[in-house]
């Protein structure tokens, strides 16, 4: 009798561990990497270093926030990297009118890009991966037509946006944090957030419950586009140069990785904003660790792959339950 109890308890514990891993594993991973680095990496424990890591990860977090929303609807947005490049081009082209008009132009372009994605997905029923693939390829092309090569920018407002701070905290970090709080609020507290999750979990049910499915999907893709544009502007401001050729390259993969590692399932219906932020930080710390110890760049890719496999494994355990 006792034996039987033990036997049935074992798989239950495994499932519980997997579920714990999916929800909190990413935070544990971040904590672990921090401890390891404090012990083994020289000069790691300094305000300057944390500032560097946070500034570098800020654009990834911002893009990943939008990606989390899209993935929450059981979609995916492959065009974020291209939209970043588009933002960089538009910013450079309109900066002559001043920073604010240029930002408005960027927002406009990003919104149009998001609307194009949203229309394909919500109105025409195109698979998100296909719909956004079009803009992933075409968006960078358009960016390069507008600005064929890297261009240095010498706008003081833009420069201070990229490198300025408030009491030692860079604007980039403040903006990313504010956006994370905002998106978390939207997901948890608003009608829109709840409708989004319901649509992601079961679209037919959401439709029959009279939810504005199309509108919600459109807004989600527009938000994703706008967030990618914000990231593109900030990265450009930091670099003080608009580089549509390479800005945002592979950003879609970084963002998806952050979201998935953070415990948001690709099957939609659940979004973890805290996990997404932690997921981005985890990948950043991992990359930083390997670079700081001068390990071959290919190791970074392998390490990332291992993290993704772990995350997917944890998610699978949860799904099976």
């Amino acid at each position: 009798m006792a034996e039987a109890t033990v036997r049935t308890a074992a798989p239950l514990d495994k499932a519980r561990i997997l579920q714990w891993l999916q929800t909190y594993g990413v935070y544990a991973g971040v904590a672990l990497l921090l401890i390891v680095n404090i012990v083994i990496t020289p000069h790691f424990l300094s305000a300057e270093n944390f500032r560097t890591q946070a500034v570098q990860v800020a654009p990834v977090i911002i893009v990943a926030l939008g990606m989390a929303l899209v993935i929450g609807t059981e979609g995916v947005d492959l065009s974020v990297g291209a939209v970043m490049a588009l933002a960089a081009s538009v910013l450079a082209l309109y900066l002559g009118y001043g920073l604010l008009p240029a930002l408005i132009a960027v927002a406009l372009f990003a919104a149009v890009a998001g609307l194009a994605n949203g229309a394909l997905v919500a109105l025409l029923g195109v698979q998100p991966i296909v719909a956004t693939l079009a803009l992933m390829v075409g968006g960078r092309g358009i960016a390069l037509v507008m600005l064929p090569q890297l261009e240095d920018l010498h706008n003081p407002s833009l420069a201070s946006l990229g490198s300025g701070d408030i009491v030692g905290v860079p604007y980039l970090i403040l903006i990313a944090a504010a956006l994370a709080v905002l998106i978390a609020f939207v997901v948890r507290r608003t009608t829109f957030g709840r409708q989004l999750l319901a649509i992601g979990d079961s679209r037919p049910a959401a439709q029959l419950a009279g939810l504005p499915v199309r509108r919600v999907l459109m807004v989600v893709y527009v938000v994703s586009g706008l967030l990618a544009a914000v990231a593109g502007v900030l990265a450009t401001a930091r670099l003080q140069a608009s580089d549509p050729t390479s800005l945002g390259n592979l950003m879609e993969l970084s963002a998806i990785t952050a979201v998935v590692v953070g415990g948001t399932p690709l099957t939609g219906g659940r979004i973890s904003i805290g996990g997404t932020v932690a997921g981005a930080v985890l990948i950043q710390l991992l990359t930083a660790t390997l670079i700081k110890h001068d390990l071959p760049p290919s190791w970074t890719q392998i390490a990332q792959a291992i993290v993704i496999v772990c995350a997917v494994y944890a998610a699978r355990g949860r799904g099976k339950r």
Partner: peptide, 13 residues
């Protein structure tokens, strides 16, 4: 199951 409930959300939601 597929057109009525939203299985991943709570009773409340």
């Amino acid at each position: 199951k597929s057109e009525g409930i939203v299985p991943g959300l709570s009773v409340r939601e």
